[in-house]
Amino acid sequence: MEALGTEWALDWIRRSAAVIAENKGELSALDRAIGDGDHGENLDRGFRAVIAKLEGASPETPGAVLKLVATTLISTVGGASGPLLGTAYLKGAQAAGDAPGLDGAAVVSLLTAARDGVVARGKAEPGDKTMVDAWTPAVDAATRALGGGGDASAVLEAAAIAAAAGAEATEPLIAHKGRASYLGERAIGHRDPGAQSSALQLRAAADAATGA
């Protein structure tokens, strides 16, 4: 069982940037249905800024990588997603600390701190049709995988699968937070874009761990 180091964190973020760029049209389409229609473009702008920053910096730990991601997303994404996602990465970075490598337990701590940060910032609960609906099942599944003896890769794989299912499960929900909450029942039938983009980023984290 190898701990996940700085290379993994960098690969995670590069894969996230690529998958967000690839899916920005779809994310904005989801956002047009129940929000203001700019989620994909905003997130793509943020991750492009992150990649540019990473080229000029040489973070030495996974925590340092995530901290750079956090501050860049907060100042470039805008809307609610910038502060929320930025907080997730920032709390994740703080949980990772200065450790050069993260084992399964450290990855679960990172994901838990990230989710708790989003919940504290946005005050959304599971079922409110927000990114929390991807993060919370991801944390629960990661915790179960760790309990079953899973290593860091297995923990991330479990988190990624649960996040994708969680994002899909936002479709029948009425939104209770964010712009979509103004729509009432008209939000039913549409997947939450923030949950979807969070699931994509967690899938990138898992794939970076296995080199898939």
Binding site: T71, G79, P83, G86, T87, R121, G122, G178
Partner: peptide, 14 residues
């Protein structure tokens, strides 16, 4: 509106 408060709270935290 909502995200203005989020941005403000995040800025204060950091």
């Amino acid at each position: 509106l909502g995200s203005a408060v989020l941005t403000a709270e995040t800025a204060v935290d950091l």
